[in-house]
């Protein structure tokens, strides 16, 4: 009897292994758990009551995320600028590179932990995930398509009408369903399995001495804006970058409020290993460059964050050792499982 059990488990195990090698869609046969809040994360801000994540909705959203018909000439997908291996950013591009080789003015932000995001885009303007995809679809430098055309193209594909039926009950392709499906996929892209998370959840991993010292430094010098566990407080701040050649004024452009000039959304510090270059216009190619900015390059422009003007000094003093330790700690925020999770890959 006992032997039989072992045999069954062994065969089952082999089956899973075999699936892992040959079929990246192994997860498809596993039970779909829907959106799961990591135990060390706060309650999400997204209204799940209005859009329950289902297996069918998520899969439809994933198909749409990787669907080139979302762009005018069917060449660009969401995944073109939000590449999973780069933690859903466009690694190596300072500003996003869209349709017809056109260049935008900002760095592709990651599709990650969006269920906790109150505002979208580097400069705000979008406050509901269900409305966010309209921006890249209609932007001239990104997908350059109208939402109406996208929906018409999707309606003409039997694969999609079938998927809409599975996800929403009928084949009807509406703006709301299209947006909700995309949201379901994006909401599932939760990065919560970094070493930091495992340490916080006491899963048996511990920080090295450098990481621990870096963590202490981080809490002292960085956490007021990049607050745990999302490593952003979701606010908009001027971090002293100085004006850019295109004079991007950030939040001001959508509010026209003088005190919003040059404020940009505080980005998360998760997955920095995969997401360089950094800041809204991708001007810093390395973490070292970014840290040096805070140490010695902060410029006094209107609305500079008060955190960057303390004791008569601009910026945050960081010694070479501080930088090493901070870098060690920030390394614990990289989530390899996230960038390799087959559920989020193009199928």
């Amino acid at each position: 009897m006992r032997k039989k059990h072992w045999m069954v488990l062994l065969v089952f195990g082999l089956f899973i292994l075999a699936c892992k090698k040959d079929h990246p869609v192994k997860e498809e046969i596993e039970r779909f758990l829907g959106f799961q809040k990591p135990s060390n994360f706060p309650e999400p801000v997204y209204n799940f009551a209005n859009n329950k994540v289902t297996k069918e909705g998520f899969e439809l959203g994933r198909a749409l995320f990787y669907e080139p018909r979302l762009s005018r000439n069917n060449t660009i997908t969401c995944g073109s600028c939000h590449i999973q291996s780069a933690a859903f950013t466009q690694h190596g591009h300072d500003v996003s590179h869209g349709i017809d080789d056109r260049l935008g003015t900002r760095n592709s932000p990651p599709i990650m932990n969006l269920a906790w995001s109150k505002a979208f885009m580097w400069g705000g303007g979008v406050y509901d995930l269900d409305l966010q995809p309209i921006t890249p679809i209609t932007t001239h430098e990104e997908m350059d398509e109208s939402l109406e055309n996208v929906l018409n193209k999707i309606r003409a594909v039997p694969k999609y009408t079938a998927m809409f039926k599975q996800a929403f009950g009928t084949e009807e392709v509406t703006t709301a369903r299209f947006m909700k499906a995309l949201s379901q996929f994006m909401l599932m892209c939760v990065s919560s399995n970094s070493k930091y998370d495992q340490v916080m959840r006491k899963e048996g991993t511990v920080f090295t001495a450098d990481e621990q010292e870096g963590y202490v430094l981080f809490k002292e010098k960085c956490a007021s804006c990049h607050s745990e566990p999302l490593f952003t407080d979701g606010s908009f701040r001027n971090n002293g970058l100085g004006t850019s050649a295109v004079n991007d004024q950030g939040l001001y452009a959508v509010t026209l409020i003088e005190t919003d000039r040059y404020k940009f959304k505080v980005p998360s510090l998760r997955n920095l290993k995969y997401t360089a270059p950094f800041t809204h216009d991708g001007r810093f190619l390395s973490l070292d460059g970014m840290l040096e900015h805070y140490n010695s390059e902060v410029r006094d422009t209107p609305n500079l964050d008060p955190q960057l003007r303390k004791n008569g000094r601009l910026g945050i003093e960081l010694s070479a050792t501080d930088k090493l330790k901070l870098t060690a700690f920030l390394g614990t925020l990289n989530d390899e499982a996230f960038i390799n999770d087959k559920r989020f890959s193009e199928q």
């Binding site: 406050y127 932007t139 109208s146």
Partner: peptide, 30 residues
């Protein structure tokens, strides 16, 4: 500021096509 489901008919962000043709929705600034 209503959820996407309530934005139907003339309020559907897809209505009217793009801004060159009659679209009345500002995507970049909800």
């Amino acid at each position: 500021t209503m959820p996407i489901d309530k934005r139907t008919g003339v309020l559907d962000p897809a209505a009217g096509g793009d801004h060159e043709n009659g679209g009345m929705y500002w995507g970049w600034n909800n």
